[in-house]
């Protein structure tokens, strides 16, 4: 492998984030290799979503360094508009609440960012959109509005919308938490496929089975810090800290 291919996809270096006096992320470092799938699990309020949002600068870390495919920024020292745009272009994100644009058809939702961000023509963008909608199993929904789609379908559209910009890393922020279990499965199936195709993924989730089956590495967070980190085998079967054991027994044994 060449040096470029070995360079990690994401490097978080001593990320610290607090809201007022509340420290949400405490000097967390994390490296994600290209093609790796990392699942971040942990109790609510453990800072896992905030950490994820620090990667694409939806939250600006107070201190620390964020590096995505070789481009580094120090959010605490300010971020130039050009760096922000470059970083956002290489990172796709899927939210818990889908966040589709309700006044646009499914097709427009997927095509508009391609036209505005990548400068693709309407025809090029639509062709790519239809191809991606096909891939997430929603070719037939292209001309409907998001409100006519189930939650699971909306989330798959959101995935297609992010993929349409050819990101190098995909971030998932509890993508199935707002869905009932059956609809969640559709979304997880798309994510499994994406992982199998070699996409670099960072997934904040409560889906312990997904973490066990799909992730290359599982990170357990609590109180703004990383408690455990390792292969799903290690972390889920034999956690080394008491706090992680308690959390895992709550999610695994239910």
């Amino acid at each position: 492998m060449s040096a470029v291919a070995q360079e990690p996809a994401v490097v978080l270096d001593r990320i610290h984030k607090q809201f007022g006096d509340l420290v949400v992320v405490r000097d967390v470092s994390l490296t994600v290799a290209r093609g790796e799938v990392v699942a971040i699990i942990g109790p609510s309020g453990s800072g896992k979503s905030t950490l994820l949002r620090c990667i694409n600068l939806l939250e600006r870390a107070d201190s620390g360094r964020v590096e995505v495919v070789g481009r580094a920024v120090e959010p605490g020292a300010g971020v130039a508009g050009r760096d922000l745009a470059a970083l956002r272009r290489s990172v796709g994100m899927v939210f818990q609440s889908f966040n589709l644009f309700p006044h646009m058809t499914v097709l427009r939702n997927v095509s508009l960012p391609q036209e505005r961000v990548l400068g693709r023509s309407r025809a090029e963008a639509d062709a790519r959109s239809r191809q991606l909608l096909e891939r997430v199993g929603l070719a037939a929904k292209a001309d409907t509005y998001p409100s006519r789609c189930s939650g699971g379908q909306q989330q798959r559209v959101a995935i297609a919308r992010a993929l349409a910009l050819d990101p190098e890393v995909m971030l998932f922020d509890e993508p199935t938490s707002a869905l009932d279990p059956e609809l969640g499965l559709e979304v997880l199936a798309v994510m499994r496929e994406l992982a199998a195709d070699g996409m670099t993924m960072v997934v904040v989730t409560h889906e312990i089975h997904f973490a066990a089956d799909v992730a290359d590495r599982v990170v357990v967070m609590a109180d703004g810090a990383v408690l455990e980190e390792g292969t799903p085998e290690q972390v889920l079967r034999s956690p080394s800290t008491e706090r992680a054991r308690r959390f895992l027994s709550a999610v695994v044994d239910r």
């Binding site: 745009a85 994100m93 960012p113 505005r116 961000v117 992010a162």
Partner: peptide, 19 residues
């Protein structure tokens, strides 16, 4: 959330307002 999603997609502030 929609503004945030537009930002995460790399759309500029101006485009987010406009579209």
């Amino acid at each position: 959330g929609e503004t945030e999603a537009a930002g995460a997609l790399g759309m500029s502030h101006r485009d987010t307002l406009r579209f």
